[in-house]
């Protein structure tokens, strides 16, 4: 083939590629990039939900402003920092529980026993249930007067008076974390199981022949080998947990004791109609998540480079 012909062929291929890429790129720009850009823009205005076109620029006033010697704005709002703290507690608590239970679930799913297929199917069920439904189901089970959880605990003699799982401010966060863990542990378990199935069989054989205790085998062989998969699972779940909304809002509404950053931002935006202030909160949340994603992507790229691909 002549040189010029080859290069014009290559040019045509590149043009075709962009043509096929275009519809998706337009879609993603319209539903993701543009709305995000507008949110960041609104964060610097006093727009309201009832008349979003009618706004004035405030600069950084939604974030922080000094007036008559007092500071106002998002970063001076104790309720915002309460939401930040709640989000961190929720993320740390739910992800920790999910990882421990997820590994246990995955080990059981990976074991050979009669009925394993049924067990694997059962693990998928909490994942398949919509968050709204699981939140409502658990709200009913945790009902202080008529709930089956209190009933069972009292029948077993573990508690003497009913516990207000969703009303006592000291307990609501724990309840919400447990419900989230119930629904998302299967996802972690599936990721861990995929890693377990790729483990070399021979070191287990060797360990068995040498009579090494199974718990030692787990911490000595299994855990180090599945660590990359666990890291991925933890990062995925952390990024999800930091923006949690559904389960918290459905179980406890806008209650202060569980309010996360997403719940706070939505309340400002929709309930208080304050698009400017709510957008400022959303923008801060986005920056936290973007920072963590960037860290993760950099780490991943470094990994890929090391593998020499």
């Amino acid at each position: 083939m002549a040189e010029g012909q080859a290069s014009s062929h290559r040019k045509r291929r590149v043009r075709t590629a962009w043509l096929f890429l275009a519809p998706m790129l337009v879609g993603l720009t319209v539903v993701a990039i543009w709305p995000l850009a507008r949110t960041v823009f609104y964060a610097f205005t006093d727009a309201s939900l009832s008349a979003p076109g009618d706004y004035a620029f405030l600069g950084f006033e939604n974030f922080a402003v000094a007036e008559d010697g007092y500071w106002y704005g998002l970063i001076t709002d104790p309720l915002w920092w309460n939401a930040v703290w709640n989000t961190l507690v929720f993320a740390a608590g739910s992800v920790a529980i999910e990882v421990v239970l997820g590994v246990i679930l995955a080990l059981v799913m990976n074991a050979e026993f009669p009925g394993r297929a049924l067990f694997r199917a059962a693990v998928l069920i909490p994942w398949a249930i919509p968050t709204v439904v699981s939140a409502k189901m658990w709200a009913w089970m945790l009902h202080d007067q008529f709930g089956v959880v209190n009933h069972t605990l009292m029948t077993l003699g573990l508690i003497s008076t009913p516990i207000a799982w969703l009303a006592d401010p000291d307990l609501t966060m724990l309840s919400v974390i447990l419900v989230d863990a119930w629904k998302t542990t299967p996802f972690v378990a599936l990721l861990v199981l995929a890693a377990l199935q790729m483990l070399p069989k021979d070191c287990y054989e060797a360990a068995r022949v040498d009579g090494v205790h199974p718990i030692k085998v787990f911490f000595g062989i299994t855990l180090p080998l599945i660590r990359p998969a666990l890291t991925v699972a933890v990062i995925f779940r952390l990024l999800d947990a930091l923006r949690v909304f559904d389960v918290v809002y459905i179980m406890t509404g806008n209650a202060e004791s569980t309010m996360t950053m997403s719940v706070y931002a939505r309340q400002q935006l929709v309930d208080f109609q304050d698009v400017g202030y709510g957008s400022a909160a959303s923008t801060l949340l986005f920056m936290v998540i973007a920072f963590m994603t960037a860290l993760y992507l950099t780490a991943m790229r470094a990994d890929v480079m090391k593998e020499g691909r």
Binding site: V31, A32, W34, P35, L36, A37, R38, T39, Y42, A47, P52, L239, L242, R243, F245, M261, S262, A265, R266, L269, V275, G278, S279, A281, S282, T283, L285, F286, I289, A290, T293
Partner: peptide, 10 residues
């Protein structure tokens, strides 16, 4: 990775 609320107003 976008949080839902981050695109809510836009």
């Amino acid at each position: 990775m976008f949080p839902q609320v981050a695109v809510l107003s836009g």
